[in-house]
Amino acid sequence: MLDDQALFRYSRQILLSEVDVEGQDKLKNSRVVIIGMGGLGSPASLYLAAAGIGTLCLADFDTIDLSNLQRQIMYGADQIKQQKAQAAKQRLSNLNPDITIHPFTEVISEENIYSLIDNADVVLDCTDNFLTRDLINQTCFHHKKRLVSGAAIRLQGQITTFDFTKKQSPCYHCLYGDGNEQELTCSEAGVLGPVVGVVGTLQALEAIKLLVGFGEPLVGRLLAFNAINSQFRELKITKDPACTVCGGSYE
């Protein structure tokens, strides 16, 4: 039940028929896990905290350095060398002291990822390497979690949603197969800050839609953004029957 202060704080989104008081109450009782608190995780977590997500779990083992500040808008120069997850908790708690925030500072591995996402309603993949993305995808599929995956590099970004509560949903492995362990990262290829901002913001929007239950999420669709011409392009993603992660029987 929302108190008067909450009704006033979230009044602008409660006014939306798609959200209303019932939807706001769903957000309050939701748990979202964000894996990667860099350029994507920064705007995603800021908007989710502001929207009133009841519990946010922020996972990142890295510390802040000067080169992060060009795009990771969560942090300031006075936080260099601090743990990202801990620094983000401080910022988000100041933005919205009524929510619960759990920092997770271990490296994501097969041994700890299930305990991280176990109680999540939605997981956001805001990481920047294939092996971690593949592990997140496999774990979310096997435990039927909804996963919002974003990526950005250079002047391009993309986002899609995998809803593993639904049999027809494709997965990350359907899209990229075995991937490329040698793929470039932003530290090698570069990226413009607003590009990751666009994608991270869209990830927050997808999460809110899934949690409240309105609109059409990006399940089976990849939304690609090209900053050079400021155009979005939508691509269809189909479930691969031969996928080694989600293909075959659905148990």
Rank of each mutant, 00 (worst) to 15 (best):
R31T: 11
L218M: 15
L116P: 08
E106N: 13
I237S: 09
L223P: 06
Q70I: 08
E183N: 07
D4G: 07
L48M: 05
Y172R: 13
E206G: 00
V212F: 07
K144Y: 08
L116H: 07
N94R: 14
G247Y: 03
Q182T: 08
S169E: 02
L56P: 08
T105N: 00
T100L: 11
G220P: 12
V196I: 08
I14K: 13
F232E: 02
L222S: 11
V148C: 06
C186S: 15
L56H: 12
D62M: 15
G41A: 13
E181L: 13
S149D: 05
Y172V: 12
I117N: 03
E206L: 01
V123D: 03
E251Q: 14
V122N: 09
Y250I: 13
G193I: 09
Y75H: 13
L27C: 10
D65I: 03
L116I: 15
G248N: 14
I35C: 02
V219K: 13
G215C: 07
F61A: 12
L15T: 10
E106Q: 11
A77G: 10
R221S: 01
A204I: 00
L46T: 00
S45Y: 03
N226C: 03
V212P: 02
L69A: 06
Q158D: 10
F141C: 04
V199I: 15
T160I: 06
L40D: 11
Q79H: 00
Q13D: 04
Y114V: 02
A44F: 12
C243G: 06
Q13L: 00
E18K: 03
E18F: 02
I153P: 01
P241E: 13
F141R: 12
A51K: 13
G76H: 15
G200N: 06
V195P: 05
I80M: 09
I73D: 04
L2R: 06
F141N: 01
V148A: 02
P97V: 04
Q158T: 03
S109E: 06
S109D: 05
E18S: 05
N94E: 11
Q90V: 06
K26I: 08
I159F: 02
D118A: 14
I159C: 10
L15S: 06
I14D: 02
G213M: 14
S230L: 15
S109Q: 00
M74D: 05
N229M: 12
Q231W: 01
A77L: 05
E111K: 15
M37K: 12
